[in-house]
Every structure is written in C-alpha cells, then in structure tokens.
Design a protein around this nucleic acid. Structure first.
Length: 821
DNA sequence: CTAGGGTTAG
C-alpha cells in the first residue's frame, strides 16, 4: 500500500481529488500506530501533506486515538495552517481528548497570539481541557473570550461552559450560564443534571430532571446513567424502581452503561436481588458490569456472594481490573478472612494488576481488619514516602486504634505531621477513636481541640468519637454538654454513643434523652430500643422494658442476625446463633455445653442479662451457650492447632457474657483468641483482654480484671484442701468483701486460707493492684464469686459424674488427683 | 473537514 502511494505520486497522473481519496482510504483502514506513521511519512515524501488540511486533520485525530499527541503535534507544526482556525481546533481536540490539558491551553494561548480567531468549535475543546483538570481560573478567562468573540449564545459553547464550571466545582456559575440560555437541548440538561449528581446533590439533580420532563424532553441513555446514579445516592428503593420502569419505557436501545448504572443503583438502594436480575438478563456485559454487581454485594454485606461471583468471573475468563481488586479486597476486609485476603493479595501480584496507592492502602486495611496488624505495618514501612498518601497514614492509625494500641496511633499521628502530611477529617476520626479505645482521654481532648489548627472542621462523626470516649469514662455530663454545644444538629452516631455510655453506667435520665432523640432519627433501628430497654432492666423498671418491647414488636422490627466467622485451614466456617446448618454443629454443640461446665468450675458465672428474650432464667443460660461467637470459638478450640491463635470475626458487637467467657477460656486452655467485632479487636490471652474490658466495665480500667481473679481464686481453692476451704470462703463472703477495695479489715493467719492478705500477695506477686477495682465492680465480682463458689461446691459433691461428661481441661489434669477426692 | 452530557472503587 505504501508503495502504491508513492507510485501514484511519481507519475503525477493522479488528480488532487484522487490522491486525497486514496489517502482517505488508507487512513480509514489504518489500524496501528506504525501503519499511521508510514502513511504520515509517505504524505511528507510526496509533499501532499501541506496541500490537504482535511487529510492533516484526519491524521491528527488518528494520532490522538493512538494516544500519540507528539505525533499529532509534529504533523501540525509541519503544515502551513493558513488564516483559519480549523487545524488549530483539531489539534486542540487531540490534546483535550487525550487529557493533555496544559498543552491544550498553551496551544490556545499561542493561537490567540498568532491572531487566529477562535470560533464555536474552538471553545468546547478548550473548555473541556479546563474542566478535566479543574482549572477554573483558565476556564473563566476562556469564558471572557467567549463573550468577547460573541459565541456566548452558541448552544454547544454554552453547554461546554456549564460542564466546565460544574467540573471545577463552581456549580452555581454553571447554573447561571444554564439559566441564561435561550434554548436548551437534552445535552445541556444532562450536563446540569450530572453536575448536581457529581456534586452529591441527588435531590437537586432529580428535581432538575423533573423540570426537563416538563419541557417535554425525554431522556436518552446518558441522562439515564446520571439519573440512576443520583437515585443510587439517595438510596431510595421506590424511586429506583420507577427509574427502572422509565428507562424500559423510554429508551429503546439500552447500552451496557445503562444496564451497569441500573445495577449500581439497585445495589446502592439495598435491592441486590433486582440488581442481580438485571445482571443476569444482560446479554452483553463489560468489566464495569462486573464490578457494579460485585460492589452491590459488598455494599449490602453479602461478601460471600461477591466472592462466589468473583470466582465465576474468573472461570468465565473475564479479567479483573484494579477496581475489581479493590472491591474484592474490601470484601475480605469485611469478612475478616485472612486466608482469603492473602490469597487475593497473591492473585493481584500474579495477575500483574497495578498496585497503585489506593489498592496498596486497601490491602493494608484488609490485613489490619483481618487481625494481622504486623503485615499492615510492614507494608506501610516497605512503601516509599512518595507512594504514601493521607489514606495510607489513616489506614495504619485506625488499624492501631482498632487493636487498642492508642499510643502507637498517637505516635504515628505526630510522625505524619513531621513528614508534612496534612491530616484530614478521616485522620481525626481514626485518631479520636484510637484514643477512645485505649482510654486516652486527655490525648483525645487535645486532638479534638487541635482540629481547627489543621483546618479540619469537626463533623458529627468527630463529636460521636468524643462522646463515646467521654461517655465510656463515665464523664456523661461532659459528653452531654458537648452534644448540646454542637454547631450542627447531633446525628444518630452522637446520640448512639451517649446511649451506649448510659447503658454502661446505668444512667437512666440521660439515657432517655438520648433514646428519644434516636427514636425520632432512626425509628427502624432495633439496637437503640434494646439498649434503652437494657438500661431500664438494669434498674428494674420492668414496666418500661415491657413498653419498649411492645414498641419493637408493633413496628415489626427484628434484631439483625448475629454471625461469626472462623477460618480452619482452607475452610471458612460461619455460625449463626443456634446454628444447625454448619456441618460441625453437633460436635460444636456438645463442646459449648461442656465448656460452660468447665468454665463454671473456675468461677465463670453466665451473665443472663445478655439474653434479651423473654424466657425462663434456666433457658437464658442455655441460650448464651449458643451465641454465634461461642460456637465459633468452641469450633476453634477443637480444630485449630493449639500453638496458633483462634481468629473469629463477628458482625455485631461481642456480647458481654461471651467477652467474659473468652477471658476464662484463654486462661484455662492457654489459648490466644483474637476476636473482631463490629467495633474493634479483642485479643484474649491469659485471662485478659486487650480492650481492658473498657467496652463493658464502668470506666475504671481494671488492672486486675474480675475474670482473672475468679480463675486464680478458684484454682487456689482447688490446690488447697478443697472441701474445707470452699465452706470457709463461703462463710467469709457472707460476712463482707474484705479484700476489695482498699485495706483488709484484719489480717488473718495466712496459713489458714485465702483471706485478704493471701489475695493481696497473690496480686502483688503478679505486680498488680487489687485496689483499682471500683465499688460497683466489686459488688458484681462479689456476687459472681459467690455464685461461682456455689457452682464449685456442687461439682465437688459429685466429682465422678462430672468427670464423665467433661473433657477435662489440661490445667486440672496438672493438679494431683488426690486433692480433689 | 472539527463540537457539548456518562457507568464501577473510597
């Protein structure tokens, strides 16, 4: 082909038109950059290049399609442009479409200097360049040129101005241009509708859409995409259905984008089934169709469905892109599945998906949320500071916070400032919640006060962190004052934090205030009714409890189902409360029953207040055993190598009773249990939890938690002459709680048994103070000890039957059997 | 001969 072109030139037979149409055909069938360069050079050789601006323009466009703006520019510079702006416009188009906005603007200013008059074609290209990099100042200057040259009533130019202002974030200026237009077509309506949608103002976007319909304009597929996206932002399932219906009625030719945006819309409105219906009906799909469906699943907590679909996607040969990777990494983070997360990480590396900062951050976050903080830290350290952005720091700060390492989080926060990284609103959410989890109240107060120094305006979520922190520490009125002085209206997060604090400290008055606000804000949220009814129950206001229960019933509300996940080798096991679907459920059921007996022997007392059903006291205890997290931990005890930690993830907050049980289990069986709940991580080891019981206790951080006291005390009893001591201790308990708090009343002979001194010594040997226990904690402990000892006595009386039903904990086997006889 | 509005992740 190349040679034929030259032949035609040499023989000079061909007319201008013949040559032009010849090259036209060549360009039409040109399919590679190399091919294009050949055509370009043969045009130069025959000297025809300067003759036909038409061909020049074609080649410029082709170059830009092959993403080679330099090639386009070299041709452009070669040509004698003549006095009109045609080729300039084409070159501007090449720059603008390729996203080379500074080159486009340079060329535009060169054009102005060369005194070439811009026309109605010039402005849309230049404005597009300004829009793509949000250069509003340049955009405004171009707007001046538009007015000066009199193109301000050209429909295309006006639409481009609207779009430019919107993309630069100057939506009001865009609206002004839009309002002044004498005639509006679908494109500029869509531009304006999209502008509001992109600005996350879905209401404005949709009301504009309604106005458009009143002008008898119907949408096309591009409008449909924006409208669907706006409805998705609203999360209004009813509106989603009407948009869907409207699209079916008014757009006869669906393209993939419409299908994709409808899938995304349904996903965001919580209607995954409908999304899947569309997905299955789409005969042609692209990468975004996948991704939209996957994120629909993950946004609705259906991570396992997402994983299944991802699997099918790979099986069908579709290639995941970086966005797919991001969605799936977050699904693993949600599930807390380290195995799956690790697999996915390897997959990303193997399939050479580009690991940009966003994806890198998501993977770090995934590891932190799967309990593997070390790997997250290592990844952070391995990245160069140039590859880090604010989110990288945020991810690690919140990771430390989740695991209860408040000081590390604070250290990272100051390190970040030393490196000149500007903290944003998310940084402050992370650092405040880290302070809250670690009980670092003064540090938290200081961070909150410093926010304005960093030009971050405290939002409701920051107030919620503060209320949570102060509230847990028992500073309920300080928390309430903070809420009252909020510059904006307190939201559900803020009141929810106060309500939780009131539950912890049994404060009915403030609890009612918080609850009444919450019932108005979120009338469908079951958790708030339950929290408030717990507060009433704690102060025996049964009438009020009944009223709330009735309220829940009449609204037809249900508590979200609790769910716990545990990994075992390559298997991932999920447990629901009282689950019978799990293949191991029989074994697990037996194990939780025996666990309860074993734990009671060392002083565990089931916390029946954690059962909210209206059932007999004895049944309550039974129900506690079948909590999803207990089932998962029991499974872990049976199946997982004792040298490795048991990792469990729960979708809701851990229940108080399970929290206490896991402390016992970690002590008795010498197992490390790492539990992720909806709020944070709990690392159980040796009878202690890393959260220092901050989530449950009355605010005083106990250096010596009650569970540990109970365990050690009971073991002490076992090691001594059991029968006798049990009886003696029982007597002692009846008299008084001598050893808590403060000094013992009298010092008995230490050889006679575990009196106050024995206790003190026991505690001292471990470098602990007993006196840190507060009075309410003491009375609970006292009651629990009493019940625990009662249990122990009953067991002692029938040791033989007991051993039969138990898998005897190793610790007991270590004890000489004679002592028990 | 050259023109304007778009979908997934956080």
């Amino acid at each position: 082909m190349h040679h034929r072109g030259l032949y035609l030139c040499r023989n000079s037979i061909a007319t201008f038109l013949e040559l032009e149409s010849h090259f036209d055909r060549l360009l039409h069938s040109c399919s590679s950059l190399t091919n294009l360069k050949q055509i370009h050079s043969s045009l130069i050789t025959c000297g025809f290049v300067r003759q036909s601006p038409h061909l020049g323009a074609q080649i410029i466009i082709k170059y830009s399609n092959f993403r080679d703006p330099e090639g386009a520019r070299s041709l452009f510079d070669d040509i004698h442009h003549g006095p009109n702006s045609f080729l300039w416009n084409t070159m501007l188009r090449a720059y603008a479409n390729g996203g080379h906005c500074s080159q486009a603007l340079e060329l535009y200013s060169l054009m102005r200097k060369t005194a070439i008059e811009p026309n109605n074609y010039t402005f849309p290209f230049v404005l597009k360049a300004c829009a793509s990099e949000s250069l509003s100042i340049h955009g405004k200057l171009v707007h001046c040129d538009v007015i000066r040259t009199g193109f301000n009533s050209d429909l295309y130019v006006e639409a481009a101005l609207v779009d430019m202002y919107a993309k630069c974030g100057l939506i009001d200026d865009g609206q002004k241009v839009f309002d002044r237009m004498s005639k509006r077509d679908l494109v500029c309506w869509t531009a304006m509708i999209t502008a509001y949608e992109q600005a996350e103002r879905p209401q404005d976007s949709l009301s504009l859409f309604n106005k458009m319909q009143q002008e008898d304009l119907s949408m096309d597929s591009i409008t449909a995409v924006s409208v669907a996206s706006a409805v998705g932002q609203l999360g209004d399932s009813k509106k989603a259905q009407s948009v869907h219906a409207y699209v079916i009625r008014n757009i006869f030719l669906w393209d993939i984008c419409v299908g994709n945006s409808i899938i995304a819309m349904y996903g965001k409105c919580g209607d995954v089934e409908k999304a899947r219906l569309i997905f299955d009906r789409m005969t042609e799909k692209d990468g975004i169709t996948w991704n939209s469906m996957l994120s629909g699943y993950t946004q609705n907590g259906l991570a396992s469905e997402a994983l299944l679909l991802f699997h099918q996607m790979q099986a069908s040969g579709s290639k995941p892109n970086p966005v797919t990777a991001l969605i799936m990494v977050s699904a693993c983070a949600y599930l807390g599945s380290w195995q799956l997360g690790r697999k996915l990480h390897n997959f990303i590396i193997d399939s050479e998906i580009e690991l940009d900062t966003t994806l890198w951050n998501a993977i770090m976050d995934m590891y932190a949320k799967c309990g593997d903080l070390d790997t997250a830290v290592e990844m952070f350290n391995r990245s160069h500071s140039s590859e880090r952005d604010v989110s990288s720091w945020n991810v690690l700060i919140s990771g430390y916070g989740m695991h209860g390492h408040g000081n590390e989080a604070l250290e990272l926060f100051s390190q970040m400032q030393e490196e000149g990284v500007q903290p944003n609103h998310i940084t402050f959410t992370s650092i405040l919640s880290a302070c809250s989890h670690a009980g670092l109240i003064n540090e938290g107060r200081k961070c909150f006060a410093d926010m304005t120094k960093f030009c971050v305006i405290p939002e409701a979520k920051h107030y919620a962190c503060m209320v949570d922190m102060l509230g847990r520490a028992g500073l309920l009125y300080e928390a309430y004052d903070l809420i009252k002085n909020m510059p904006t209206k307190p939201n559900d997060g803020v009141w929810g934090a106060l309500l939780l604090a009131c539950r912890i400290h049994g404060h009915g008055e403030l609890g009612e205030i918080a609850a009444n606000n919450l019932f108005q804000l979120e009338p469908e949220h079951t958790g708030y009714y339950i929290l408030m009814s717990n507060i009433y129950a704690a102060s025996s206001k049964w009438h009020e409890v009944g009223k709330l229960r009735q309220n829940i019933k009449s609204r037809g509300l249900r508590k979200p189902a609790a769910f716990s996940v545990i990994e075992f080798g390559k298997e991932v096991h999920g447990f629901h409360t009282a689950d019978q679907l799990n293949p191991y459920s029989r074994e697990v059921y037996k194990r939780v029953e025996s666990l309860a007996v074993e734990m009671k022997m060392v002083g565990y007392v089931p916390d029946r207040s954690c059962v909210l059903h209206d059932v007999e006291e004895e049944d309550k205890e039974h129900i506690l055993n079948y909590h999803s997290e207990k089932l998962a931990v029991a499974f872990g005890l049976m199946k997982i190598d004792p040298r490795t930690a048991i990792h469990v993830t729960k979708n809701l907050r851990v229940c108080n009773d399970c929290h206490s049980a896991f402390k016992f289990i970690s002590y008795i069986y010498r197992r490390k249990i790492i539990l992720r709940d909806a709020n944070r991580f709990h690392h159980f080891q040796g009878g202690l939890c890393s959260c220092k019981d901050y989530c449950l206790a009355d605010g005083t951080i106990q250096e010596y938690p009650e569970s540990r006291l109970q365990v050690e005390f009971t073991l002490l009893l076992l090691q001594m002459r059991v029968r006798w001591w049990t009886r003696e201790f029982h007597k002692e308990l009846k008299e008084d709680v001598r050893f808590f708090p403060g000094a013992p009343r009298s010092t008995k002979d230490s050889t006679t048994g575990p009196n106050a001194t024995t206790w003190k010594n026991l505690a001292m040997n471990r470098g602990r103070k007993i006196s840190v226990l507060s009075r309410p904690a003491c009375s609970t402990l006292y009651a629990n000890l009493k019940e625990g000892i009662g249990n122990l006595r009953r067991f002692m009386e029938e040791p033989r039957t007991l051993w039969k039903i138990l898998e005897i904990p190793r610790l007991f086997l270590d004890l000489p059997a004679t002592r028990l006889a």
